[in-house]
Simulated scan of single mutants.
Amino acid sequence: MKESAGARIFTVCNYLVLGVIGLITLFPLYYVFVVSFTDPHEYSERNGFILFPAEWSLAAYRYLFSTSAFLNAAGVSAFLATAGTALSLIVTSAIAFGLSRKRLRGRQFILVAIVLTLLFNPGFIPPYLVVRELGLINSVWSLIVPVLTSGWYVILMKSFFDNIPVELEEAAMIDGSTDIGTFFRIVLPLSAPALAAFGLFYAVGYWNTFFNAVLYINDYAKVPLQIVLRNMLVDSSTSTGGATAVEMVADQQIPTQTIKMAAVVISTLPILCVYPFLQKHFTKGVMLGSVKG
């Protein structure tokens, strides 16, 4: 079919509008990236606003990776994103798989209890009291245990498990497999789209942990990367000793702004690198429960 003049004009305008929106969205990311790699002397001479540096430098990154506070925080965030995501996927999928099987006693009661957690928020005090009674205050596990699973994710994953034929489970049981063996050897391998989708959600949540760290962590050596980044952006603090970034880099002549931008790039890059590997599964997983037939 031949497009009319009005349709062509609409298509052109549509591309122009979307292009402008895309540039507006990507420019801050581009600026942060460019400033983080700009040579310190060039940044100082050009009064900070740089669209393309004449000389690239890794000075800001070398400085960040030479500070113990930043390396400790990066290690904590990496532990949260890996261990926390793995544990959350196991717990969420185990609960969802059990609820998807009608032979589970008290199944309806558990489902109602999970739905109630979505409708009523207990606030901040009850979770804090639970964490304190468990002795997890000032422990890295306090950033994992309270958010180990999500009622919403359990319900969505349950809808995925509902579509897995029960005959597969029955065939495995005839061959002598236990429920746990069937879960790990048959159900989880068939659930790659769901695991990829929720794994990405959990990983982003753990990597961006901030508020729970403010509540439960008092030792600066155990805070995640987002706390250090916040201190750098707001308080210009990059060490446990209270020295400011300006004081610490005065001898090295590294502008504080380039260090901040480098920290932002480092804190954002891991999730951006993981997403392409999960994309083929993620596009399927996000549609969980949308169609049943």
Rank of each mutant, 00 (worst) to 15 (best):
G19I: 02
L225F: 08
I180W: 15
F70Y: 13
L80S: 06
A172P: 06
V34S: 01
G98H: 04
L104F: 13
T283A: 09
N121R: 11
L71C: 13
F183C: 08
I144C: 01
A78S: 15
A196K: 00
Y220R: 15
R185P: 08
A221V: 07
G205R: 00
L136C: 07
V286Q: 10
A262S: 09
S191Q: 04
Y61T: 03
S88F: 10
I50C: 00
A96F: 08
A263W: 01
C273I: 15
A86L: 15
I174R: 06
T67Q: 15
G199S: 05
I180R: 11
L272R: 03
P146Q: 02
S236A: 12
T11R: 15
D162M: 06
R46M: 12
F97S: 12
V140N: 01
P276A: 05
K260H: 06
F211Y: 13
I21G: 00
L99P: 02
W152R: 09
I254Y: 04
E169A: 13
E42T: 07
Q108F: 10
T268V: 10
I144P: 00
F33Y: 11
Q108H: 12
G22H: 09
Y63D: 03
V35D: 01
V112K: 04
F210H: 05
Q253S: 14
G84W: 03
L119K: 01
F10T: 08
G22T: 12
I155G: 07
Q252S: 14
N212I: 09
K284V: 01
I9A: 15
N218C: 08
Y15C: 06
N14D: 02
F109P: 01
V12C: 07
F70S: 06
M173Q: 13
T149R: 03
F33W: 09
A96S: 15
P127K: 01
A7I: 10
V291T: 12
K2T: 13
L111A: 04
N218K: 14
L233F: 03
P40N: 10
Y43E: 04
P122D: 04
T268D: 01
S267Y: 07
F33C: 10
N212K: 12
P40R: 09
G48V: 08
T149P: 02
F183R: 07
P189Y: 00
L129K: 13
F210W: 10
V115K: 05
L64C: 08
W56L: 15
L89F: 10
N138Q: 06
S77T: 10
P276K: 02
P127C: 02
M287E: 13
V130H: 11
N72R: 15
P40K: 08
A213Y: 08
G241S: 15
V154G: 01
